[in-house]
């Protein structure tokens, strides 16, 4: 039991923080209801996928600076393919874009493994490449999304056997998020591959000596990151109805949420649940600041200060809990 708390303590703390922020939201705006929660879930969607993309790579001991550019590229690709096409055509677009994300992500991994250049430099280079490709696909924001796709993130998901009042708190966007993440993450976490990803992040040499195929595992981790990035790009297109070639603020947000979510930047620690809850906390804080009618520019300051303070606090806690004399 104590082991459970030690492992899940961070996530439990985050959950408490999320509830705390919810209570504050309710105090600020007594009318905050299920509809607002739905729009929160819609706003969280692209952020959550960006965070998932970053999490997989960070657990494997790397970092992916190209997340936001990947989302921009996949988003414009989807938007320009669906522009003027029939509704059914989207059924082809989605798997195509997801496969594209997977392949481009794998390309990141292959480049890192083959060139032996630090991952931060490789993904910086691919950031430029993907950004450039996005500009070539669509020079200015435009394109379209199929109507049924747009409808898939609006409103609530009817779940049989659930009373209406509870059903109102289950927005389609949240269901979509949970389903997409679980389809990839749960089988991964339980497989040998998932274990290998944690192993190479924790200690690459030890993993190699225990027979883990380090290069292959790393490539797969980046491919999965690309897949999540493509999901993020699709969710951007779906929720806005267009594609924009300029990457959004998802890189910093994803790194901050990963750290806040209890995933060590050195790799090998943490899970997906923490970062996802962290994204909800960060977005909800933003909602609160808007509800308080604070100037959006001041909001940016407060948001940044919160992120920095949280990260400092987290680092402080890890520092204190480290055994005396251990190498930092």
């Amino acid at each position: 039991m104590s082991r459970f708390f030690r492992n899940q303590g961070w996530v439990a703390g985050l959950l408490a923080l999320l509830i705390f922020v919810f209570v504050i939201t309710k105090l600020i705006q007594p009318g905050y209801g299920s509809g607002d929660f739905g729009s929160l879930a819609r706003a969280v969607l692209p952020y959550a996928f960006a965070v998932a993309a970053q999490t997989v790579v960070v657990i494997a001991g790397g970092i992916d600076l190209s997340v936001a550019a990947m989302m921009a590229l996949t988003s414009v690709t989807a938007a320009s393919m669906m522009n003027g096409a029939s509704e059914e055509y989207a059924l082809f677009v989605i798997p195509f874009v997801l496969a594209m994300g997977l392949v481009l992500g794998a390309l990141n991994g292959v480049l890192i493994v083959v060139t032996r250049v630090p991952d931060i430099v490789v993904t910086l280079a691919t950031l430029f490449v993907l950004q450039g490709a996005a500009l070539l696909v669509l020079g200015a924001p435009g394109g379209a999304a199929a109507e049924w796709l747009k409808a898939s993130v609006v409103g609530t998901a009817p779940i049989p056997g659930l009373p209406d009042w509870a059903d109102a708190w289950v927005p389609k966007a949240l269901v979509l998020l949970v389903v997409c993440l679980c389809i990839v993450w749960i089988p991964l976490r339980r497989s040998r591959l998932g274990l290998s990803i944690y192993a190479i992040g924790s200690n690459e040499l030890a993993a190699f000596r225990s027979g883990v195929p380090v290069a292959r595992t790393r490539i797969i981790a980046y491919a999965l990151s690309g897949l999540f990035g493509a999901m993020g790009g699709l969710s951007l297109t779906i929720s806005t109805g267009i594609g924009a070639p300029i990457p959004g603020p998802y890189l910093l947000a994803s790194v901050a949420a990963v750290v806040l979510g209890g995933v060590a930047l050195g790799g090998g620690k943490g899970g997906l649940l923490g970062p996802i809850i962290a994204v909800f906390v960060l977005r909800l804080v933003r909602t609160d600041l808007t509800l308080l009618a604070i100037d959006p520019n001041v909001t940016a300051i407060i948001e940044g200060a919160i992120m920095v303070a949280v990260v400092m606090f987290g680092a402080f806690i890890t520092m204190r809990s480290r055994p005396v004399g251990a190498t930092p």
């Binding site: 970092i63 931060i120 790194v255 901050a256 750290v259 930047l265 920095v308 990260v311 400092m312 680092a315 402080f316 890890t318 520092m319 930092p328």
Partner: peptide, 8 residues
């Protein structure tokens, strides 16, 4: 506080 420089 030993925060990762990238984040900080």
């Amino acid at each position: 506080f030993r925060v990762h420089p990238l984040i900080m």
